[in-house]
Structures are given as structure tokens and as C-alpha cells.
Design a binder for these strands. Structure first.
Lengths: 251, 251
DNA sequence: TTAGTTTGTGCGATATACGAACAAATGTCA
DNA sequence: TGACATTTGTTCGTATATCGCACAAACTAA
């Protein structure tokens, strides 16, 4: 690829969109310039472009994103068949065990939810397709990492800020790599309150016909209501079923 | 705003992202050029830029979007506080009535889901935050249109392709405008199998403290399991409760 | 007011988009 | 199978639009 095959104006614009976040929903031109590192003049041009296209609102001082932005993410969710194909299995699974079931894929050092069937809400966090969790302390993250060559998994862990979300969170790379070996061995990952106190979850990998791991499937439950034994004893067999059914329908 | 305050390369790039959809998840350079109307050379540069940034994969022939694209939509969902604030009420409502509850906002002539608490799946369509429905035949769409000045509502209807999804779908603009007046009067909208056979739904508007309508709230149910009388008799009072609670917490 | 901060503008240097021409791959038909 | 037609991808020179900088203007807060 040649130098000129890269449109820097486009790349800069995308970084401007990503500058908006939970704590930063109303941004001035200078704010965006500060967050993205772009020149103020450039940030301004990107923001005005977004506003002109209807992706952002501008009150003369602050910019906010509009729901039109969701078209971009939705282009992916409706474009890839994975969520559509998996959803019925999540619904079924979630109904059977009375807990939430989700599916996710890997993006960098984060797990991205692509589908979810939620029963009652067990977490303080509100998860929906597009939500992200750090890969090292989520059950689906462990499963997806375990599916990679050790080198790559290690590289992702090294790129992660291994923060202890609770007193149970495993944060030592060596310890995590050891855990990945166990996951690879047993074929499932179990997380006990490593992400949030009171929450445990179990995950298995989802493979296509070629055996390639393309996503992960999990069930999350309240620690108070479910024992770890329940999870491996009652949930895991049902997940195994879903796992093999899904393997059959994925090309 | 000056001519030079618009970055056409950025706008073109965004249109390339939107070119990907349900039926068009794997696109060649020429495909994108055809869909967007961009020059092949320009489409290629946009696609290569997306690939270089990790937003797309390229196998030498076809491009596909990667989950990283979800960051863009998620920038909105996590940036705006509306979904976060509304979610607990949806959960509660959904639990009480045993049916799905959702919230949405208006974007052009479509309704965009921003939050959802789903019980069992009643529709063939799989709805999640970011999903879109045509405004004219969705209960939340009716409510959101009714909140606009008649002129604007009419303009949106005129811009819509008023397609009959079922034999019950109302497609006459005059008939729809009349229905909007009724909705404005009564404060709720009821849809009986206009979008999909077997599905009915009821919606109410959500206002902030200033009385500005900022979103809509609905409950969807299977026609076989629920009578229309149930919806106005049992669901509506509960929705009214949620409506006023939410009005209290929205600035 | 004045200093500090944020936003808007003009301009030269530079990078991008266009259109066309070329190259490569694919499809078609005898 | 081979030769031609068609579609698709890539390259290139040039006209044009964008970038980043420096400066001007508007706003804030003592």
C-alpha cells in the first residue's frame, strides 16, 4: 500500500468520534483537540463536518453526538451474520437457566458484546451489544485469549492495564497465562467476582465448522444465588449443547 | 460556515461505512463504489484507510467490517446519559408485565432503539440498541411524531416510503396524521399488528423536566397472549408510572 | 481594565481527489 | 481451448482542497 492510499482526514474524523465517551459527552472544539491531539483547526473542521452530516449537534459552543452515529456501529451488527445466528441460542439458554447469556468477540485487549439475552440485571454495569470489558478479567475474554497462540495472548495481556477491579481479580501475567492453559485444557473459563463483587460467570468458545474460534458464549449470575458448582454442574452441560449446535450452523 | 470547514474525505469515508449492511456484509471496491457513488479510486482509498485503522478486514478482494466499528456507535450510547438513566425503569417494567420494554429516539424517518429489557423474544426481528424501525408503523414512532409540530411530522411521513408490512398497516398520510392527533390527545399510541403479524405494542412519550419530549417508551407483546384491552388497562397505568418517575430524573 | 483562555480566519505548503489510462482478472462464446 | 469482451483493481499527473501555523477576535474571570 502506498502512502497516498491513506486518507488522514478520514482517520482524524474517526478519532474525533471516539473522543466522545461516558464522561465526555459534551465537548468543545478545544476539548476534542486536547483529547485527540489534533490541531484545533482540524478538530473544528471534523466537528463541523459531523454536524453538517447530522451525526452531531452544535449549540455554538458544545458538540454532542446524535443517534445517527449508531448507523455506523449498526452497519456492523446487521452486516455480520454472527449475532443474528447466535441470538436464538442465547434466548433459549438464558430462559433455561434463568440467567443472562451473552456472546462476544475480541477487539484488541477488549471483549466486545455482539449479542445478549438478559434476564434480570445482575451487574451494576449495563451491558448491550457494543459494550466492552477488559479481556483479562472477563470469562469470555479468558476463553478468547486461550484460543490464541501463547505469544499473541501474552502480547495482549502486556498491552492491557491489569487493574484489580476487586480483591479477587487476577492481575499477574504469569498467573493469567497459567489460567489460560487451564482454560485451554478444560474448554471453559470460570470467573468468580474478579470483575465485580457478587458477579460470577462461565464461558465457552464458539467455533465454526473449520474449528476456528470466532466468538465466546457466557452465562453471568449473581454469586449469592448460584454456587460455582452449579455453574460447572448445571450450566456448563447446557452451554456445551448450545456450543455444538452453533458449531453446526456456522460456516 | 465556510466551504473549507467541510472535510469531504471524512464524509465520504462515513458513507463507505454505511454502505455495509445486512445484505452487503462483504463488499469489493467496485461494490462500494456502486453503492456510494464514489469513484472507484476514492472508494478504494477509504476502504484501505479503514483496513489500516483496524475498522475493516481485507482479504485482497473483499472488505468486511470488524467489531472495532462498534466503538463509534458505542461512543454515542455511553456518551448520552439517557440509556443509562432509563434502563432500570425498563427492567422493572419488563419484569412486572412479563413482556419486553424498550426506549427509543427519533432519527430522520426512523426510530432508533437506545435501550431495551427483553423477556422472551416475540418478534422475528432481533431488536437491540441501535436497531431501527420505520417511524410510521411503530408505536414509539407514532408517539415521537405526535410530539412534533404537524408540519414537521408531515414532512417526515412524506419522506418515508409508506409500505404496508401487514394487511393492518396504515399507509395513508391523512389517516396517519389523524392517528397522530389521537395520540396527542390520549398521550399514548397503540399498534396492532401493523409492523408484524402477531405483534402489538403500546408506547408513551418521555419528557424531561422542561416538558420536552426526548424519547419514547414501549411495551411489545404477542397478540395471541395479550388483548388490546390488557394493554391499555394493565400496561398503560404501569407505563404512566414509569413515565413520571423518569420525568423526575431527566434534567 | 487586563491577563488568560477559547474560538475563528487567512495563507502558503502540502496532501488528496479526480478522471483517464493502464493492468489484471473474470466471464463469454465459438 | 483460445480469443475477445467486460469487469475490476491500480497507477499517475494535475487541479484542487486540506493542513497547520500564526494571528485576530471573542469571551471569562478576576
Amino acid at each position: 500500500m502506498r502512502e497516498t492510499d491513506f486518507i488522514s482526514g478520514f482517520a482524524k474524523g474517526l478519532s474525533v468520534i471516539e473522543a466522545f465517551g461516558e464522561e465526555t459527552s459534551r465537548l468543545s472544539i478545544s476539548d476534542v483537540s486536547g483529547i485527540t491531539g489534533l490541531e484545533r483547526a482540524t478538530a473544528r473542521r471534523c466537528l463541523l463536518t459531523l454536524a453538517q452530516l447530522g451525526y452531531a449537534d452544535y449549540d455554538g459552543k458544545y458538540f454532542t453526538l446524535t443517534p445517527r452515529i449508531l448507523r455506523l456501529g449498526h452497519a456492523y451488527l446487521s452486516a455480520t451474520s454472527l449475532p443474528r445466528l447466535i441470538q436464538p441460542f442465547l434466548d433459549q439458554l438464558s430462559e433455561k437457566v434463568g440467567e443472562s447469556a451473552s456472546a462476544s468477540v475480541l477487539d484488541g485487549n477488549e471483549v466486545v458484546y455482539i449479542a445478549r439475552a438478559s434476564q434480570r440485571r445482575v451487574m451494576s454495569i449495563n451491558l448491550s451489544p457494543g459494550s466492552r470489558l477488559p479481556v483479562y478479567c472477563a470469562s469470555m475474554g479468558r476463553v478468547l485469549l486461550a484460543a490464541l497462540p501463547e505469544m499473541e495472548a501474552r502480547a495482549i495481556l502486556d498491552a492491557s492495564e491489569l487493574k484489580a477491579h476487586t480483591k479477587y481479580t487476577k492481575t499477574e501475567p504469569a498467573q493469567l497465562m497459567e489460567e489460560l492453559r487451564r482454560v485451554r485444557e478444560e474448554g471453559y473459563a470460570l470467573i468468580d467476582q474478579e470483575l465485580e463483587i457478587g458477579l460470577c460467570s462461565i464461558a465457552v468458545p464458539l467455533a465454526d465448522r473449520k474449528g476456528q474460534i470466532v466468538a465466546a458464549l457466557n452465562i453471568g449470575a449473581q454469586a449469592a444465588r448460584t454456587t460455582l458448582k452449579d455453574m460447572t454442574g448445571r450450566y456448563l452441560p447446557l452451554m456445551r449443547e448450545a456450543q455444538s449446535s452453533i458449531a453446526g450452523i456456522l460456516s
